[in-house]
Nucleic acid binder design. Structure first.
Lengths: 332, 332
DNA sequence: ACGAACTCTGCAAAGGATTGCAGTGAGCTC
DNA sequence: GAGCTCACTGCAATCCTTTGCAGAGTTCGT
């Protein structure tokens, strides 16, 4: 192994051509003679040459790198998104910088600004940042939002309304007429859309929805919500996400309230843990890796289209996964 | 906001000095006059200047970037490690490329090789790669291993023996004398060490250990192991990790076997899910973010010490977290 | 008051890849 | 066979920052 990696010049010398030709062989093969191309390819192979990204970036102004900002890597939802982003990026030979903001919305803006200088674009999962902050960021950076929409900014979202419709149809079919809603953080984009979607769907079925407020999108949040849910007298509850649902399940168990006997529970996300909950959680599965994958595709499209003739936007659909936490409504 | 970001020259012009001086102000402030320094600082501030990493990397040969390779980002253990790595790297203004190998050990070597050209060093979580592969990688790359040791390669490991000792002491105190061990993948470094540690600790207490074999380090693996564990007649079981323990718990529940009434269960890792399991899982908590943090520190130290005068290595200790899945051994 | 010792600053080269422009040679047309 | 086109290749400038070396100016010792 060479102590210092082979450069373009080394390849050129070995192949008996000029550096320009090597460069062209690699980036615009059609432009060079087949015989030359073969010689160069052989030299590249022999030397194990890999272009120096820094040098290339210096001249092209592109880094071949994208940034990915998430609120919390330990949250399985985001972990899956990262997985998707990373896999798709690799296929296009794009490297991914990951940054975890630790749910700190204030630091986030600064972090994104700093990151933006080092990357070609950013995939941003920022459920709670304000629209103004987002606009400021998008002003001077190529950004694709995940799981939220904002005017004029590209993004990939879930059709929350439709997911809620599936959940409600399922519950109504089971005889539920009074459905509780446990919201996530009030400022969260998806809380708003899921809440609204749920309300709409419930009204379509002439049933009743009772919102019990906003809770942290965590296990603890779910535990905190449980007693209020019970107090509403609802026979079913839909929660902001699975983590909340699982916390809720735990508290209900402690109180000896049977699920789904007395109360049916539906989550959103379908994280791995949901399958393992007791009872296994009925939930609206959101394609997470898919979201990451598409975010990257949108971003790459955006980068290749500087004059903004495309509107990179995408929508993904949820799928109701019925498990054991939902059942027929108890007889009144 | 400037369409094209400010360069060193822009700053120099604004401050009325040469580019060299600006560069020095930024990297070796002591060398420049205080008044000049202030002028430069003001210009930097005004222009929002940030050095171009590519250009710097080109000349210094350092990219200011490290790579992080994990088998599966969706595994909460690794997600936490990533979090730790990422946080520590940011404090030193080092960017992190993350790569998920999707548990593909074959692709891994190639991936690491490719990555190694783009980064100053790599933090590698590779529980299953062979020692030979690891050596090959370490040959021409700065690598720090996480959660495994290999001759001559820097790394951060857990004191598995000691963790097992804690678990066994706890179980023995509860009256358990026959303890089952559910191993992870046979080739995994930590399976070997945990298995050995357990055996040693059990023998110290004149108790008995019965190994039920190797299973996938997953929920499914745990479910698969459960019936065999029961068949051993052991009153307690220690599993390779929490995911396995939780799968085991699920299967035991299905079979109506009481935990900890009939069988006590101990996991390893303390992932978030363990707290939420039913019963809440007793486990050996491994400091995960800490491992990531230290791995970065070792790597950084390694990079600053090219002549290899230091031996970057670290050990972390587990801590037994007693929850509800362990209790007194049933009377025979 | 002269030279030495410093302190601070600028010049210029270097690092690796890309690309507009120009040059070479072959092939073709008439 | 002269002139033209076309395909291919090389030259050289460029991207931005760092750093060895040298120069300018100041201070201090004697």
């Amino acid at each position: 192994m060479p102590a210092t990696p082979a450069t373009l010049r080394d390849v050129a010398r070995l192949a008996g051509v000029s550096p320009s030709t090597v460069s062209r062989t690699l980036s615009m093969p059609a432009m060079v003679n087949a015989a030359t191309r073969a010689r160069v390819a052989a030299a590249v192979e022999q030397l194990g040459y890999q272009p120096n990204r820094a040098a290339r970036g210096l001249i092209t102004g592109r880094t071949g790198t994208i940034g990915l900002v998430v609120p919390d890597l330990a949250n399985p939802f985001f972990a899956s998104v990262v997985k998707g982003v990373q896999a798709r990026a690799r296929r296009s030979d794009v490297a991914v910088f990951v940054a975890d903001t630790d749910e700190d919305e204030v630091a986030e803006v600064g972090l994104v600004q700093a990151l933006s200088k080092q990357v070609d674009g950013i995939v941003l999962c920022s459920p709670r940042a304000s629209d103004a902050d987002l606009s400021a960021i998008a002003e001077n950076t190529n950004v694709v939002l995940v799981n939220r929409a904002a005017a004029g900014i590209p993004g990939i979202t879930y059709d929350n309304e439709e997911g809620m419709r599936q959940a409600v149809a399922h519950l109504v079919a089971l005889g539920h007429r009074r459905i509780a809603w446990v919201g996530g953080p009030a400022t969260s984009w998806s809380t708003q859309h899921r809440g609204l979607g749920l309300r709409t769907a419930v009204e379509e079925h002439h049933a009743e929805v009772v919102a019990v407020g906003n809770f942290a999108p965590t296990y603890e949040g779910g535990m905190a919500a449980a007693d209020q849910v019970v107090a509403t007298g609802a026979t079913a509850v839909v929660t902001y996400n699975d983590l909340v649902a699982i916390g809720l399940l735990a508290r209900l168990h402690t109180r000896g309230i049977s699920v789904p006997g007395v109360l049916s529970v539906v989550g959103v996300d379908d994280i791995a843990m949901s399958r393992m909950a007791r009872p296994a959680l009925t939930t609206v599965r959101l394609p997470k890796q898919e979201a990451g994958r598409i975010a990257v595709e949108l971003l790459l499209a955006l980068l290749d289209d500087p004059d903004g003739s495309i509107d990179p936007r995408g929508t993904l659909h949820g799928e109701l996964i019925v498990r054991d936490s939902t059942g027929p409504a108890p007889n009144p």
